[in-house]
């Protein structure tokens, strides 16, 4: 037999262990070898928890298989899985990624009671009236009047921002941050954007010029890759 490459290779680093799993072995083999290898190292009590990164190579694991490996690795040892990384993703996930990195262009008036949602960035050509709502996973660009509510980064992206030709919103929301209009009657502003200012730990409204400095202009796809 050409037992050239071992099924499991363990490498220690400063941050913890890396577990390389050979991409050509069958899943049964992996389960067997893994159990054997881990049983060999008997864990000491009160030993600190070790973080483990599992590298799967060009292997795709179904949800159930992932759970099985996790169980084997974490059960007997004081190991904790930090990540399971694979070089491949299923077509379904790839399509979702693609959707999420697209700029969706919509031409309509978002009227009171209506909600417009984009999986990636949203470019709205039209107004958001009072009582209307726009939501996007990424950034929101409005060529029109923003008078209702805009929520960018709905899944937690704090780098997301909201830009509009005219802003007099009831609320701006970015990730989990919310800012609302003042209680006194105030005029709106032209060509401005809302972003999270980490120093003040809140949403601030400023001229859209600041975006070139404050936000690296990377495509939605790159952002999607970075966010995993």
């Amino acid at each position: 037999m050409q037992e050239t490459k071992p099924t499991i290779t363990i490498k220690g680093t400063r941050d913890g262990l890396i577990l390389f799993i050979d991409e050509n072995s069958s899943f049964e083999e992996i389960v067997q070898d893994l159990t054997k290898k881990l049983d060999a190292s008997s864990p000491q009590k009160e030993e600190p928890v070790v973080s483990v990164k599992v590298k799967l190579g060009h292997r795709y694991l179904a949800e159930e298989q992932r759970r099985q490996l996790k169980k084997i690795i974490e059960e007997k040892n004081r190991f904790q899985i930090e990540a399971m990384e694979s070089e491949v993703i299923p077509i379904k996930d790839a399509k979702t990624w693609l959707d999420q990195s697209k700029l969706q262009v919509v031409n309509q008036i978002v009227r009171s009671g209506q909600v417009l949602e984009a999986k990636g960035d949203l470019l709205l050509i039209g107004d958001v009236n009072p009582g209307g709502r726009v939501r996007a996973r990424g950034n929101i660009y409005i060529m029109g009047n923003l008078l209702g509510i805009a929520h960018a980064g709905i899944e937690g992206d704090q780098e997301a921002f909201i830009a509009a030709s005219y802003m007099k919103p009831a609320q701006l929301r970015i990730a989990e941050y919310i800012s609302r209009a003042p209680d006194y009657e105030a005029d709106g502003v032209y060509m401005e954007c809302g972003i999270i200012d980490p120093d003040q730990n809140k949403i601030v409204i400023d001229s859209i010029k600041i975006l070139s400095k404050q936000r690296k202009v990377i495509s939605a796809f790159e952002r999607r890759m970075n966010n995993g």
Partner: peptide, 12 residues
């Protein structure tokens, strides 16, 4: 006006 806006959205 707000309700009119809502209605227009539904009619559209």
């Amino acid at each position: 006006v707000r309700d009119a806006d809502r209605i227009i959205g539904l009619i559209e």
